[in-house]
Each structure stands twice: as structure tokens, then as C-alpha cells.
Amino acid sequence: MNLVTPSYGLLFWTGITFCLLLLVLAKFVWKPVLNAVNARSQKIDEALLEAEKARQEMKSLHAENERILKEARAERDAILKEAKEAGAKMIEEARDKSKVEGAKLIEAAKAAIGSERNAAIADMKAQIASFSVDIAEAIVKESLASDEKQKALASKMVEDIKLN
């Protein structure tokens, strides 16, 4: 029976001690400790969030870099292509131009050669004519030196004419 009869003394002291403990612990321990724990977990959450954000940023930055690189590459390719085209065109043009020039030059040369030749031929012709006249004069002088020869020539010419 003693065992299950509360004693006032112990009840009294338990009450005082427990209430004091409750006040002190709630004010100076549970609150600050749990606040610290909450603050810490919040800090950790924030840090995690930030890390995630940084990672995302890094990712986007990376993508941006990639894009810029790609663009640059494309631009480079375009420039190269353009340059190549321009070069080819220039070469083509130059070739065309040189062809035309060449042709012109050849034409001019041909013309010059032609005119020169013509002139030479004409000159030659004149020379030949004068030579032939000289030769003919000499020959005529020779062949017509006697009467027989004159008569033979005249008869031969008549014969030729008859044959024609």
C-alpha cells in the first residue's frame, strides 16, 4: 500500500523541479537548439539550392559557349567558303580576261602579221615584177639579138595562140 500512496513531499519537490526544468530547458535549450537546427537545415537547403542554381547556370553557360563556338565555326566556314568562291571567281575572271586579251593580242598579231605579209607580198610582187622585167629585158635582148631568133619566137607565139 505504501508503494502506491503518493507522498506530498516528493510530489511537491517534483512539481517545483519539473516546472523549473521545463521553464529553463524550454527557454534556454529546446528553443535555441531547435532554432539552430532549423537555421542549419535552412542554410543547407539554401546552399543546395544555390549549388543547383550554379550548376544550371554553368550548364546554360556551357550551352551558350557551345552556341557561340558553333556560330563562330559556321561564320568561319562561311567566310572560308566565300573567300574560296571569290578566289575561284577571280581566277575565273582573270582566266577569262586573259583569254580575251590573248585572243585580242593574237587577233592583233594575226592582223599585223597579215598586213605585214600582205605588204611583203606586195613588195615581193613589185620586186619580182621588176626582176622579171629586168630578166625579160635581158632575155629579150638576148633572144632578139638575131633575126632568126625573132622569127622563131614569133612563130612559137603564134603556135601557142593557136593551141589556146
Binding site: 507522498s7 506530498y8 513531499g9 516528493l10 511537491f12 519537490w13 523541479t17 526544468l21 529553463v24 530547458l25
Partner: peptide, 19 residues
């Protein structure tokens, strides 16, 4: 009787350790 009995002293020691 509100004596500091064995249990009360133990209570104080416990409270002291806890604090």
C-alpha cells in the same frame, strides 16, 4: 513532510545532470 528524501535528492541530481 516535505523533507529532502533519497528520491528528492536523486531528483535534484537528475535535474542537475540534465541541466
Amino acid at each position: 513532510d516535505i523533507s529532502i528524501t533519497k528520491n528528492v535528492l536523486s531528483l535534484f541530481i537528475g535535474a542537475f545532470i540534465l541541466l
